[in-house]
Amino acid sequence: MAKNSGSSLFGFVAGAAAGALLGVLFAPDKGRNTRERLSYKLDKYREELEDLIEDLLEERKVAVTAAKSEGQKVIDDAIKHAEELMGEVDALKERISTPVLDDEEEV
């Protein structure tokens, strides 16, 4: 169950983040507004990833039997991927925080 739970939750969070990111990027709005909304959404997804890592770490503490140790490998892998995703979120936030003048903002 831990294998399916961690993988499903990680997949859901990653899919939601990608969908929101694409939705915001293709929305017709000024660049500054889009960057602010994207930064806000990335903060929210980062918080969700932190919560996911915390939950996974709590599950790791419960591992006792051999079956759970196999699930532990899945949890460790999910933690690694979530941390990598958090790093990518931070890098993306850094990139979008650099102001870029849009045609509408050059006036």
Rank of each mutant, 00 (worst) to 15 (best):
M1G: 13
M1C: 08
K3M: 04
S7K: 01
S7N: 02
S7A: 07
S8Q: 06
S8F: 00
S8E: 02
L9F: 03
L9V: 03
F10Q: 02
G11R: 13
V13Y: 11
V13M: 14
A14R: 11
G15R: 15
A16D: 15
A17F: 06
A18M: 10
A18N: 03
L21Y: 09
L21A: 07
L22M: 13
L22W: 11
G23V: 04
G23N: 12
G23S: 10
L25K: 13
F26I: 08
F26G: 11
A27V: 13
A27H: 12
A27M: 14
P28M: 00
D29V: 08
K30L: 07
G31T: 06
R32N: 08
R32W: 08
R32M: 03
N33L: 08
N33C: 08
N33R: 02
N33T: 08
L38V: 11
L38G: 03
S39K: 04
K41T: 02
L42E: 12
L42R: 00
D43I: 09
K44S: 14
Y45C: 14
R46V: 01
E47Y: 09
L49Q: 11
L49M: 15
L49A: 12
D51R: 15
L52K: 14
L52E: 08
I53F: 00
E54Y: 04
E54A: 07
E54T: 07
L56R: 05
L56Q: 01
L56P: 02
L56C: 01
E59C: 02
R60L: 06
A63F: 00
A63R: 03
V64R: 13
A66E: 07
K68V: 13
S69R: 15
E70N: 11
V74T: 03
D76A: 02
D77P: 03
A78K: 04
A78P: 01
K80H: 05
K80V: 03
K80M: 00
K80I: 04
H81R: 08
A82D: 15
A82V: 09
L85M: 12
G87T: 01
G87I: 09
D90V: 01
D90E: 08
A91N: 00
L92S: 05
K93L: 07
R95M: 06
T98Y: 04
P99T: 07
V100W: 04
L101T: 00
L101V: 04
D103C: 05
E104F: 09
E106I: 12
